[in-house]
Design a binder for these strands. Structure first.
Lengths: 335, 335
DNA sequence: GATCATATCCAAAACGTTTTGGGGAAACGC
DNA sequence: GCGTTTCCCCAAAACGTTTTGGATATGATC
């Protein structure tokens, strides 16, 4: 393994000069720099990252604590996000470190350990909650972070999010314009900010249309929970003719519940979701949904993170991305 | 931040003694050890991992190169795998580093870089292929690795896999015993070992039953590709009455194709998959499939990896896990 | 009392890099 | 010829740990 030392002795130069030549400093003669670069390339020299990290006092690593079941991230989104993040960070020589933690007390312990160990220069918070202890913890520790999703705090923090509120206002407005009046909302657990924002979009559109916004049920973001919740709503006195679901997984369950109740989805009842997961295209009928451009979000996340580590809080600390509406048969808006 | 130096000077001891006390060496007096441990705990001392890594010459890190689209890992499996791996490795103070790479030339470049940079002590290979350049590359480089899935090589290597061959033999046998005769196979791309093994299971069961095993079509592991392939098969002269699909995503597409052809899935035609992804339970009808216990596989993977790093090739280099068959309506075996 | 084993501790080297604070020689200004 | 600047280079320190190879003191043995 070639080191600075071996290169230096081969070239009859000092370690300092070799190091500075490779880093492109101006105080080494152009000819020498050239010679050093040639030799380094020939020897396949790559600086020892551990040594550099020790000396520079930074870990060149970004950590992401991923929640495991239950409360897990939506799969296609999560994996795409990891891909983009990995690529973008690698381009700047940052490693992406993955930590796993079950939601709850254990999760905070993982963050604490990460902070103490200083194994990462920054971290990414996913599944941000409305009241999120992680934010204060990281701010206090002085560890830079970017949130995927928002939280309710007065403090300034960096985040990237999809505009769930606008998205749900839009879909609700469309459903209203199709003639629906009893439009229910199947919400995700309201400690998640995304759930609250999506709910708010629905609430606002309903009120703006002069409709009652009390047909709302909260459930976990799973097909089973969605099916159960939808079944309950459809058995109630105020049977809705439309179900605006917080996520596609809930919507898939809702479609099934509606069919079990003898309804033709897309004709007797409209169902919509959010995420545009693969499965939503292949249910029968296909599910109307909306989607975020994950690659943009991931790239934005990575850029903010790098900015934060290298130059402090970016000018645009928070970015909200629009959602693309995907009209399909489950709401009677396609086929 | 507490360091060995600060602890040592606070305690009036040498750095050596503090270090050795914390590591539990016998050559430090029990009373001193006690005193040191107390002080370290009080100061919240945690050793600087970068310094330790530099000194010990190991990175305490395991890398996983994840393929991005196309050819991506099945989502629920992948995320679960990451969770288990992260937990198991963290328990032994190993970090899990994630690298992203598009399949193809770029992928090998990522592996090369990882090897040269020595940022990881070992790595995990996923989506193992029948002829996999990565194996030879890593063996030559002397970087320990464990495969998720098998490859075709004479060399000894560590792997963990599901028994796709037995699983597909079993499902094919069941379908035969239901009275089907023209049983087609929708295979995944045959450069993946898993695809080859699943195919083989189907082939063997068909021949054992004295049936022709030429109704086979290969397609990507997506719903779209599955739909297209199934459509082609159903339009052919030798219309199959059963479709054994390599993956659930293919099966979901196949179900849709069958329905488009006017068939009632589960009655006129049997369809089966593999993976037991969430969506497979919520199609209409639900899809018969099989599943691997991902937590066991992940734990086994992590254990093998640690064994490899700390003690060399484990006794059982390769482990194959059985698949659990999940009978549902799409094959007429439930409801 | 000398010798030896044992128990306890420590100084210094090493891991490979980056950075500080010059140092020597050539070129330049007068 | 002398001082000053410019150009190129380098020795040494530093990052925080682990490990090597003793050193010192104490007690036991004869």
């Amino acid at each position: 393994m070639a080191t600075l030392r071996s290169l230096a002795s081969d070239l009859g130069l000092s370690i300092t000069t070799v190091s500075r030549a490779l880093d492109g400093y101006e105080d080494v003669a152009a000819a020498t720099r050239e010679r050093v670069n040639k030799a380094a390339a020939a020897a396949g020299y790559r600086p020892n990252s551990t040594a550099r990290r020790l000396r520079k006092g930074s870990s060149e690593t970004v950590a992401l604590v991923m929640p495991t079941e239950p409360g897990r991230f939506y799969e296609p989104v999560f994996v795409d996000l990891l891909s983009v993040l990995g690529e973008r960070l690698a381009a700047r020589h940052f490693d992406l470190m993955l930590l796993a933690a079950r939601p709850g007390a254990e999760e905070l312990a993982v963050y604490k350990r990460m902070i103490k160990d200083r194994r990462a220069d920054a971290c990414i918070i996913v599944r941000t909650r409305r009241h999120d202890e992680r934010i204060a913890m990281l701010q206090e520790a002085g560890l830079p972070f970017v949130c995927h999703g928002r939280t309710e705090t007065r403090a300034e923090y960096a985040y990237v999010d999809g505009d769930g509120e606008a998205g749900f206002r839009e879909v609700t407005n469309r459903i209203v314009s199709l003639g629906h009046r009893r439009i229910a909302h199947l919400a995700a657990p309201d400690h998640f900010t995304f759930a609250e924002l999506r709910s708010r979009g629905w609430h606002m559109a309903m009120r703006a249309a002069g409709l009652t916004d009390d047909l709302k049920l909260m459930c976990a973001s799973t097909e089973e929970a969605g099916e159960q919740a939808a079944t309950a709503l459809l058995a109630g006195p105020d049977k809705p003719t439309a179900l605006i679901c917080a996520t596609d997984r809930i919507a898939i369950g809702a479609v099934r519940a509606a069919q079990a109740a003898g309804l033709v989805v897309g004709r007797d009842i409209a169902v919509t979701g959010h995420d545009n997961i693969h499965a939503s295209r292949f249910t029968h009928p296909a599910i109307t949904t909306m989607e975020l451009d994950v690659r943009s979000v991931g790239a934005c996340l990575a850029d903010k993170l790098l900015h934060l580590v290298e130059r402090g809080m970016p000018e645009h600390a928070g970015d909200v991305f629009p959602l693309r509406q995907v009209l399909r048969a489950s709401s009677g808006e396609a086929n």
